[in-house]
Design a protein around this nucleic acid. Structure first.
Lengths: 219, 219
DNA sequence: GTCTATAGCTGGATAGAC
DNA sequence: GTCTATCCAGCTATAGAC
């Protein structure tokens, strides 16, 4: 399968698509500044100059790559939350809200083979950076949907002050990002019993854990 | 105070110490590959060649820097856990275990002015990287203490299968790292009501949240 | 649109004087 | 131990032929 190809199949994808796919993987593995345009162009089997032609600059490439992936995630979140609120009459249960938030981030678009895990890693890296560039593209992609989810959580947890919902939302972000990063740490510590790369297992454990955290007694 | 100095006071610290202090901050801000030896040497007001002389290479510098900071954290964790087990007769309460694990990571050595937050950020960045170098230095610094804490958690949660303790430990790591990273995201989403940089506030909210997650019904 | 070629820097590392 | 000077591989970006 394409997911196992180290080098992109040059026959089926456009130059643009090949650049995006390789860049996503290399940025995820080595970080924004750990990979050069030469590595991207050679692995994608495109000319070095074509990256500048299609994306303007390295930052332009990363920014476009990020928003192409992030938009469907934010959309899926909102859609799942809308569906849940329609089903439950405006007050969705906590577990359903949490899963609506996390599931789209972990699965990503199935139309893009092999892109999923790489994008999760990339996103997790950017989310732990303090730099303006990362903060800006994350804000642009996710502010709207995240605020919407905070509202839903406030409604689902009537006894909990808003600021505590916000703290707990922050803890949820950390849990989600570290799972997406899949750094291999817990595999070592658990002697391979845990695999954060397995989306369904991860969700099965994460959602009840987070729900209990959100429901814990207000301070 | 030294914490507010952008440039290290060249009079009081040795060349080695100045390099370490500046490197810690720059690596934390811009990542391992986002900062060059030239930036470090000029900001630390040392000669470029002195970095190679004292640390061998850029990787050597980062590795030494990391283990110098990490060792006291791992030691403090073990000491706090030992104390708790002595106090409670071998079975420390869950909240005490969690705080013993997280507090040393968030406060770091007070002997190093300004280093604390920078090291937390650096550590969070390395922890979300899949690269071998990061995994190796994290393993070296924290495997022993982390395994010890997993044992303590298994003992504190008799009804919970070990693999679930491990999953929840992974979620705890994510929560802790994202708080240490202090990316500014929750400040935006909460209109500045939350500040993960405030250690006591962060702990006050985090410990009960995590404890509830650990105590949630086994699957 | 696609390519070659290259400008103009900056990267890490090191040789060798003192 | 500390410095200057330098190597050369890599970087992003672009000019200009086709």
């Amino acid at each position: 399968m394409a997911a196992r190809e180290a080098v992109v199949d040059a026959g089926k994808l456009s130059v643009r698509e090949r650049i995006l796919e390789v860049a996503e993987r290399l940025f995820a593995e080595h970080g924004r500044s750990g990979v050069g345009l030469r590595a991207i162009s050679s692995e994608a089997k495109v000319n070095l100059a074509s990256i500048a032609y299609h994306f303007g600059s390295k930052e332009g490439l990363l920014e476009e790559l990020f928003s192409l992936r992030a938009a469907p995630i934010a959309d899926a979140r909102i859609r799942l939350l809308d569906d849940a609120e329609a089903t439950y009459g405006g007050a969705a249960p906590l577990e359903v809200i949490i899963e609506a938030f996390i599931r789209p981030a972990l699965i990503i678009g199935p139309q893009s083979p092999a892109g999923g895990e790489a994008f999760g890693r990339l996103r997790a890296r950017l989310a732990t950076e303090p730099e303006k560039f990362s903060r800006r593209i994350l804000s642009k992609a996710f502010d709207k949907s995240s605020r919407r989810f905070i509202e839903a959580l406030v409604k689902a947890l009537p006894g909990l002050p808003r600021v505590q919902v916000e703290w707990r939302f922050h803890f949820m972000l950390g849990t989600m990002y570290y799972t997406m990063a899949n750094s291999g740490r817990i595999q070592v510590l658990s002697d391979q019993r845990c695999d954060p790369g397995n989306v369904e297992f991860a969700l099965k454990h994460m959602v009840p854990f987070l729900a209990a955290g959100f429901r814990s007694t207000p301070l």
